[in-house]
């Protein structure tokens, strides 16, 4: 079976007056129906840009090359009008700040039903019925009454639930969640994560979860893509995250997660600053300048080395047999 979303050799560059920004550089990714993947990376690693490229919502100064196949059709080749028919219906997006991602001048009821109206799926009245049902599913009490409220009358966590419900209203096959829990408290974050996961399973959707939080990614996703400087550093199954990781960058990330128990020791961190991808890329590995395992070969750009079916890594260390963490 062909994957729901298959990205091959995707590159995104932004042209500004001064310089060219190499935001995404030859990314491969695939997601099967009913599965969840997470794209993890620091800010500026290009993780959100990938998904914005999939939705074709990037600004006009972006040039995109490669292939993004949704259900077999390359969305990068579609005319804008056809693209608009996909947005909201085939693939929908949940944004980071629900508060500023909702139109403040409209009630959430009017907003929620919009995707259905845009795609002529139902009358306004029927769509409201669906909205009520969905709000109930995401755990908003008194949904019928709440439909008449404005976004500012909700709390942050509630609004994120509303946003999720709104993304689901047209029953998309692919849901993209761009850091949906980053702006929330830890407790609320857990609730929203569980909700997202539950909805994804029930509906058999594909879910792409973009986050900077490895722990969150491990909770939600089946597969994890770790990005750095616009490259995928390592692709690994969530279940193997703590045992089989190879790339020094990912190791650094895992080690720098603070632990609540155990003796209080100095927290390990990755030295240096995230690489600047403005202007140009280094010839070799983008992580080399911060890597403590750097050796001669790192002057060459590492290729993707497959370790198992679900596990690949772009690091020369993996070439001569895998050194276990």
């Amino acid at each position: 079976m062909a994957p729901l979303l298959e990205i091959s050799n995707l590159s995104v560059r932004f042209h500004s007056d001064k310089a060219e920004v190499f935001a995404v550089n030859g990314l491969d990714l695939s997601l099967d129906t009913g599965k969840a993947i997470a794209i993890v990376g620091e800010s500026g690693s290009g993780k959100s840009t990938v998904m914005m490229a999939v939705m074709r919502l990037l600004q006009s100064n972006a040039s995109i090359t490669g292939q993004v196949k949704l259900d077999g059709t390359d969305v990068l080749q579609l005319p804008e009008k056809a693209m608009r028919r996909l947005r909201g219906k085939e693939m929908a997006m949940v944004f980071q700040n629900a508060g500023s991602s909702m139109n403040p001048t409209k009630t959430i009821g009017d907003q929620m039903i919009e995707p259905m109206l845009f795609h002529h799926m139902a009358s306004a009245r029927d769509a409201r019925q669906v909205a009520v049902k969905l709000l109930h599913q995401v755990g908003i009490p008194d949904p019928e009454e709440r439909l008449n409220n404005y976004p500012f009358e909700f709390s942050g966590g509630q609004l994120q639930r509303v946003m999720i419900a709104m993304a689901l209203i047209a029953d998309p096959k692919l849901l993209i969640a761009d850091e949906p829990t980053t702006a929330l408290d830890v407790t609320v974050q857990a609730e929203v994560l569980i909700l997202l996961k539950k909805l994804q399973r029930e509906r058999g959707m594909g879910l792409v979860f973009v986050t900077h939080d490895l722990a969150v990614a491990a909770q939600v996703a089946d597969d994890i893509y770790v990005m750095y400087g616009g490259f995928v550093m390592e692709r690994i199954a969530a279940s193997e995250l703590t045992t089989h990781l190879v790339h020094p960058y990912l190791r650094g990330l895992v080690q720098s997660i603070p632990k609540i128990d155990g003796p209080r020791t100095e927290l390990p961190y990755i030295p240096g600053q995230p690489i600047s991808i403005t202007g140009g890329l280094p010839d070799g590995c983008v992580f080399a300048s911060r890597c403590d395992k750097r050796f001669v070969k790192c002057h060459e750009r590492p290729r993707h080395i497959s370790i198992s079916q679900q596990h690949s890594v772009s690091c020369w260390l993996a070439e001569g047999g895998v050194e276990q963490a």
Partner: peptide, 25 residues
């Protein structure tokens, strides 16, 4: 603003965005 982006992600056309999102705000 982000809600214009969100509206586009739901499949809103330019005209819809101007009339129902930009002008009221």
């Amino acid at each position: 603003t982000e809600y214009i982006q969100a509206a586009r992600s739901m499949g809103a056309s330019s005209l819809t965005i101007i009339l129902r999102y930009i002008l009221p705000n």
